[in-house]
Amino acid sequence: MSGEHMQIGEVAARTELSLRTIRHYEETGLVVPSARSRGGFRLYTEADVARLMVIRRMKPLDFTLDEMRALLEATDRLDSGENLPPDDREDLLDRVRDFERAAQQRVEELRTRLSRAEEFAATLAQRLTGSSRP
């Protein structure tokens, strides 16, 4: 096996995704191994790892599998080297911009939730340290 291909275990370690999760993303068509070994093992490239990292980063922001697929399809076309008509290229860029705006909004919502959770935890800690009960 050449150095450009990795087995699923190495990909799991690099992406911090479980083998089961990677297989699930394969079953749903989000990522497909670039090759198979003679023994039938999945083989991945750096591009496959990058794709999994996009998926991993979208997951905590609650993007659906369909949304992940839509973004990946848009970026795949933009990155394909295909000579796209200007209108098609602009449409794809607009889709990516929409995802960027949605991601920023979801990050802000998570920051708000985290702040509230930290306030709650601090309130509980204060209650415990300020308590005079034995």
Rank of each mutant, 00 (worst) to 15 (best):
E109C: 02
I8C: 00
T75I: 09
R14C: 06
P85M: 09
S2E: 12
G3T: 07
Q126F: 05
S132C: 06
E26K: 00
E16Y: 07
A117R: 11
E4I: 07
M6Y: 15
V11Y: 04
L110H: 08
D94G: 15
R106K: 12
R57P: 01
E46S: 12
T129K: 12
T75A: 01
L93F: 03
M68F: 01
L128V: 15
T28A: 00
L124I: 09
D88V: 15
R101I: 04
R111P: 00
R23K: 07
R56K: 15
R101M: 03
E109T: 03
H24A: 06
E118H: 11
L61P: 11
I55C: 13
V54S: 08
L114R: 15
M68H: 03
A122F: 04
H24P: 03
R77Y: 06
D76A: 13
L61M: 11
R20M: 06
A13R: 14
A121T: 09
L43I: 04
R57S: 13
S37Y: 02
P86H: 10
R106G: 01
D94F: 07
L61T: 10
T112H: 13
L61V: 09
V31E: 01
A103I: 01
R51Q: 09
A125Q: 12
L71E: 05
T45S: 11
D66W: 03
R116G: 15
L93D: 04
Y44M: 00
A13K: 15
R38N: 09
A102P: 00
R101E: 05
L65P: 08
R116I: 01
I8Q: 01
R77K: 14
R95K: 14
R133K: 10
L17I: 08
P85C: 07
Q126C: 06
L110N: 09
L43K: 07
R111T: 05
S34T: 08
L19E: 03
L61A: 06
R97A: 12
E109Y: 00
E90G: 07
T123F: 00
L93W: 02
S132V: 10
H5N: 05
V107Y: 06
Y44V: 00
A117G: 07
Y25L: 00
A70F: 05
G81S: 10
T129L: 07
E118Q: 13
A121C: 04
A47I: 08
E16W: 08
L110T: 01
R51I: 06
F41R: 14
R38I: 03
G40T: 10
R57L: 08
R89W: 11
T129S: 13
A102I: 01
I22V: 05
T123L: 01
A50N: 15
S80M: 05
G81N: 06
L128H: 13
K59C: 02
A47Q: 14
A47S: 14
E10Q: 15
A50K: 14
M6S: 07
L78P: 10
A70P: 05
T45F: 00
I22Q: 04
R116Y: 01
D88A: 12
F99Q: 10
T112M: 09
P86L: 11
I22C: 04
D88T: 14
R111V: 10
I22M: 02
V11F: 02
R77M: 07
V96Y: 06
S18V: 04
R20K: 15
D98L: 11
R51M: 06
A13Q: 13
L30Q: 02
L52H: 14
A103Y: 04
R89H: 13
G40V: 09
L30P: 11
A70R: 12
L72F: 03
